[in-house]
Design a protein around this nucleic acid. Structure first.
Lengths: 354, 354
DNA sequence: ACTTGGCACTCTGCCTGTCTGAGTGCTAAC
DNA sequence: GTTAGCACTCAGACAGGCAGAGTGCCAAGT
């Protein structure tokens, strides 16, 4: 379980020097993908230590499960646990320079409606990180109803239009038992607007149940049909979650995903969506950046991958999650702030237009 | 250029026996992917011919460009031209048995709104053929306007709702110079419904230009603003074409696409969409099944692939194209009827609900 | 004139052995 | 606790050998 900044990862058992060496090893491995040997490390670690000494330390690190050798004589690579320690305790996050932020900002400003925005933020993430970018569509459950409107379609079908958050428009078609005149429908929508405009969908759904019972006694026919219709609108409103994924092809450049079977499983998971959505759901309650490394995600298809996510919000309410997927060996110190900033940008973009 | 059933592919230069051998060779290569040698062919061709004789014929076929050897001693594989002849003149299309058709039918019947339908037809194609399925979204230019409605959103913005073909609902937001009351908007939509409901969007767009001039003289203010608004609705209505692709991962099982770089280019073309859409556009005027083999498509990313497409229609008007993408070595005799039938099914599904 | 068997040739795939470079573990000395 | 030295191991690259599959061509058969 990714539990940030807790010492549960046993980093405490490592002395200063071992931590430093682990850090350099991970950085080195991230940057060139090769197993790191004692000589290289001795050269690059900045301390005056011979390869032999390094070897002793490495042996300890291996015993503790932070690194491992792919084979007898091949240097060490970090294990998932090694990455975990690195990410939680060792890594120094790079600040983005203002130029990069500006670039992100510009791309966000350029788009208008929400789906377009989500699309381009996803493309943005994938472009900047050279990994796969991922943005969950905003859950409209927590969005505010601005306006509701009914239009007659045919004898037994009515088109319902929901305007959410000023920009977002949703359509639904409901089946009704008897014919309604345009005037009937007009009245119904007036009633509902009066009562529900300005609240979020979740509230509305809850309130509806209460109101339906309350009015049953007052015997107001108009009111009752209006509420019944509203009931239909919101009843089968199971959050159909979805996400936009961009830049899958970036993942095809990584040696660790060169195995076609592995890659197929991964791509299948992407189009299957279910597993990925579950994973994203688990990130939605985290206050900030959340990271799953390798098998930590619990999904076989993501074994060789890491996911870095951050939730985005409107008026303090979490609407969704965005992030990137890449090989475990990714440049966390760059990716983490990018995901973080992007989530903030998307949040403020959504805020400013709601 | 794919020009079906013309003898331009020089099949005429081949005698009966050579044609038969080419046919068997292509079939054999399609089914197991290996280069076909003279001995195998002599065994499988059904004629009583020694391998030596076969070799002579194969040499001729190679001279004419229908087959080639990957290297000195490796049997022959069909060239693009060989496939072309095979597809145009040699192949016997398998009839689908009623069970398969029923299966397709059921899947189509199960879905409701258009996007869902397109989605599931694409999944269907990919599932049945084990290739990538492709369905272009219906062009709404040729769809019928059933109803138009305006709703005030804010002082200077109006939400426009277009109901097309009974089931399809589109939203658009337009900016207006001055505020309109709900009543104003109601009147405007009434006017426009009277005039335009029942026509297709392309007609409407044309008519609008004329009407705008005609009413300028009659000085009917209401009329003029209504038409002006309608103008705004339809002006920036550039057909944004799109398609739904399913089952890309199927393509990863084919040996001829095992080269990661090649595969990346292909997948990039899929998410880029532009090239694929151009290609589909070229298929839209064909009356029936259209096939591009290998480089015939003209796009480098599709070099190793073939595309089989068929247009689908509503009331005789072509709304879009669907098809499959797979390696050049695909089971044409099965794929062609599947694509053909699926297009018909989609057409009739769209017809029955419009 | 077409068909066939035979033969030499070629190429791939596979296995083997060898060698080198990189890296480790261990031990003994500092 | 640190270091140098040494024996050991392993992957990767390279060359040689061998079997299998297939071709092209030629000469003989029908």
């Amino acid at each position: 379980m990714p539990d940030q900044r807790t010492p549960s990862n046993m980093v405490g058992t490592l002395n200063e020097r071992a931590q430093h060496l682990l850090k350099v090893l991970v950085e080195r491995h991230i940057s060139d993908g090769q197993p790191v040997g004692s000589r290289t490390l001795s050269r690059d670690c900045g301390l005056e230590l011979s390869p032999a000494t390094i070897r002793n330390v490495m042996a300890d690190l291996e015993d503790l499960g932070f690194v491992r050798s792919p084979h007898t004589s091949a240097g060490r690579v970090p294990t998932v646990r090694g990455y975990r320690v690195f990410v939680d305790s060792l890594l120094q996050i790079k600040k983005l320079n203002s130029l990069e932020i500006e670039q992100l900002q510009r791309a966000v400003d350029a788009t208008q409606n929400t789906t377009e925005l989500v699309q381009s933020v996803s493309t943005l993430l994938s472009g900047v990180t050279r990994l796969a970018g991922l943005v969950m569509l905003p859950r409209h459950n927590t969005q505010m109803l601005r306006h509701i409107e009914f239009l007659p379609l045919s004898r037994d079908r009515v088109l319902v239009i929901l305007v959410l958050n000023e920009h977002e428009v949703h359509n639904r078609i409901i089946d009704v038992e008897r014919e309604f005149s345009a005037a009937d429908l007009q009245q119904a929508s007036n009633l509902l607007n009066e009562r529900f405009a300005g609240r979020d969908l979740l509230q509305i759904r809850n309130d509806l149940l209460n109101e339906l019972q309350a009015t049953r006694e007052s015997m107001n026919v108009l009111m009752e049909t209006a509420l019944a219709m509203a009931g239909k609108v919101f009843e089968n409103d199971e959050e159909t979650e979805d996400y936009v994924l961009q830049g899958q092809t970036n993942l095809m450049n990584f040696a660790e995903l060169a195995d076609m079977e592995k890659l197929r499983q991964l791509f299948e998971a992407f189009s299957e969506k279910r597993e990925i959505l579950h994973l994203l759901d688990r990130c939605i309650d985290a206050r900030g950046v959340q990271i799953f490394i390798g098998e930590e995600s619990g999904y076989q298809a993501l074994d060789e991958c890491s996911i870095v996510t951050a939730p985005y919000t409107v008026e303090g309410r979490v609407l969704g999650v965005l992030g990137v997927i890449g090989p475990t060996r990714m440049a966390y110190e760059r990716v983490i702030p990018i995901v973080d900033v992007t989530a903030r940008l998307l949040s403020s973009a959504l805020n400013s237009r709601s």
